[in-house]
Each structure stands twice: as structure tokens, then as C-alpha cells.
């Protein structure tokens, strides 16, 4: 499905925003400003931007742990800087510094946050999808997962239950080739991981996850199907992560030339070519988008750097809803 020029421009800008977001995060992770470790999704922008583009604010989104992009784009524009300051462990962060890179959420846009445990949100997502059925509304739940996630038993429990109960759930399996260092072909027998859904009679397909137009088209069909109450869909989106598993992983397990080959299929590059070749978008227009994104990202970074750190003693808040936990 070909997108309109305006639509393509919008999602191009989305992708550029999350690309730049990740690049800045990487800078501050490497120089030690951001504590802990960070999972970056550079190279996977089309899958994240495309899926979020299809969803409504009232749809439930469960990004995976390599999901800063989906989080940022799900959030309201004015809240996006708080996604970054959360990763910076600041008090202004969307979780007040409790969660960090692996637990950024925003309930106001039903971004349910993600989780450091592979396969965990795959079953949690049953609950929000179940809620739509129980309350008889048409909110759809999308859960992101990776090729590595599929090794977890919960994926089977989840797909089995959602298929049996026809829950409005879309499984977005971003196959970025590697679970840390293990290539998916070394961990799974299927040539195409999506065929795994067929065993549960769930419509399943494998698409080019770097082609934003294809991502949007297929996701739209799956979401529409879910809204009609026809049950779950599994979409495997082929892509590639440019960085190592975490920021700083040299990724020595990849064969020479593989990364360069995938960089040729850069989702941003593909979208830009379409914009320029099919829609006659000028270099100046592309530059204007880039300038806007730079201003935006600079603001996120400034906000994150200048934000205060959380009060250490606030760590004892919110353990229970109705009782205090002793502090020091």
C-alpha cells in the first residue's frame, strides 16, 4: 500500500526522531551519564514507527525491551522528553527514575511499559485484550516481541489462549536476527518464525520490517481484524539491529559484511528515496524535517541533563498501594 506524501513525511519524521533519540542516548550511555545498560533499536525504526502509527491512543501497547522508539512515539509530544529523562535516571522521568531504560511507560496513552523479562508481557497483554472483551469495547492490544522472545514458553500459552478466546491482540515479532549472539536459525527450526503461529490457527505472516509502507499496511489489517473481534494475528517483521545487544557490545558474533548489507536496507534511507523519487520531495524539505528533529532532540537532552536526580528516599514509595515501607 502506497502512503500519501503527507503520511509518508509524517512517519519519516517519526523514524528520524527515534533514530536521533537512540543516537543521543548512546552518546550519553557511553560517556557514563546514563547508568546501567541500554538496548538500542537503531535500524528497526520502521517496525516501531509503523505499528504505532496505526494505533489509537486507547489501544494498549506493550513495547519490548528494545523499544524506546515505540515508547517515544506512543507518548504525547509534550511527554517525550520525559521518556529520555527517565532513561537518564532523573526525577522528571516518566517513572520518576524508578524504571530506567527497561521500564518506561505512560498509562495516559496506554503505553503499558515494558519489562526486563523476555516473554513476560506476552501474557500480561492477554489481560488488557481480555478487558476489551469483558467490557465489550474495541480497544486493541499490541505486544512487541523479538525472535529471541519466541523461545519462552509463555509465548505458547499466550497465543493459545488468545486464539481460543479470540482476543483482540496483535503480536508484532520484530525479527532482528539475533538473540544477543545467537542467530534465530540456530535457536528455532522454522525458516520463517511466523509459521509458528499457524499451529494455533492464528493468521501469521512475515514481512519486510524495514519498509514502513508494508509495516503500516499489514499492521492495519491485523488491527482491523482484532477490532472486529476476529482474534489475534502474528506479524513477523524482518529487520536488523545495527548496534550490539546493548550499547557497548562490539557484536563480534556477526559475519563480516552483514551489517553493511543491512545498512543498505536502512528504513530511513528507503523512506527518503520514496519521498524524493515518488513524491518529489526536495532536499530542502528533507533538511527542514531534520532541522526540526534536531531542535526537538536537543530539547530532550537539555531537559534530561538539567533535571534533578530523584530523592533517594523516594525509593520506598509505591511499593504497596496502602502501606508504607520502612526507610533507612
Amino acid at each position: 500500500m502506497a502512503l500519501s506524501k503527507e503520511h509518508l513525511l509524517k512517519v519519516y519524521e517519526d523514524m528520524l526522531l527515534i533514530r536521533r533519540f537512540e543516537e543521543e542516548v548512546e552518546v550519553y550511555a557511553k560517556n557514563g551519564t546514563i547508568p546501567g545498560f541500554i538496548h538500542l533499536s537503531i535500524g528497526q525504526e520502521a517496525a516501531q514507527a509503523g505499528v504505532v502509527d496505526v494505533l489509537k491512543d486507547t489501544d494498549y501497547k506493550f513495547p519490548d525491551h528494545r523499544g524506546h522508539g515505540a515508547i517515544v512515539l506512543s507518548s504525547k509530544p509534550e511527554e517525550r522528553k520525559r521518556c529520555m529523562s527517565e532513561i537518564f535516571a532523573k526525577a522528571t522521568g516518566i517513572n520518576g527514575g524508578r524504571g530506567g531504560s527497561m521500564h518506561v511507560h505512560d498509562l495516559s496513552v496506554r503505553n503499558m511499559g515494558f519489562n526486563g523479562i523476555q516473554g513476560s508481557t506476552v501474557v500480561t497483554a492477554l489481560g488488557t485484550a481480555f478487558n476489551s472483551v469483558y467490557r465489550k469495547n474495541d480497544d486493541v492490544t499490541v505486544v512487541f516481541m523479538g525472535d529471541g522472545t519466541l523461545g519462552e514458553g509463555t509465548c505458547h500459552e499466550s497465543l493459545n489462549m488468545s486464539a481460543t478466546w479470540k482476543l483482540p491482540l496483535v503480536y508484532v515479532l520484530i525479527n532482528n536476527q539475533y538473540a544477543i549472539s545467537t542467530h534465530y536459525t540456530e535457536a528455532h527450526p522454522q525458516k520463517q518464525l511466523s509459521t509458528w503461529g499457524l499451529g494455533y490457527e492464528v493468521p501469521s505472516m512475515t514481512i519486510d520490517g524495514n519498509d514502513i509502507e508494508e509495516v503500516i499496511e499489514v499492521t492495519q489489517q491485523a488491527v482491523d481484524r482484532a477490532r472486529r473481534g476476529e482474534g489475534p494475528t502474528l506479524i513477523e517483521m524482518m529487520s536488523y539491529r545495527w548496534q550490539g545487544h546493548f550499547s557497548g557490545d562490539p557484536a563480534a558474533y556477526r559475519p563480516d559484511g552483514e551489517l553493511e548489507a543491512w545498512k543498505e536496507k536502512d528504513p530511513l534511507k528507503l523512506a527518503k528515496e520514496k519521498l524524493q523519487e515518488k513524491h518529489g520531495v526536495s532536499d530542502a524539505e528533507i533538511q527542514a524535517i531534520s532541522d526540526r528533529v534536531e531542535v526537538e532532540i536537543a530539547e530532550y537532552v537539555k531537559f534530561s541533563l538539567e533535571s534533578p536526580v530523584p530523592k533517594p528516599e523516594d525509593a520506598v514509595k509505591y511499593v504497596y498501594t496502602d502501606r508504607e515501607v520502612e526507610g533507612r
Binding site: G127, T128, N131, G153, T154, E157
Partner: peptide
């Protein structure tokens, strides 16, 4: 896992 996971998701709703 599906039962308790469903509980988590549904309770947030």
C-alpha cells in the same frame, strides 16, 4: 502464566 499474566493486565485496566 497466562492466567496470572491476564490478571496483571486486566487489573491495570
Amino acid at each position: 502464566s497466562a492466567i496470572t499474566g491476564l490478571c496483571c493486565g486486566a487489573s491495570v485496566c
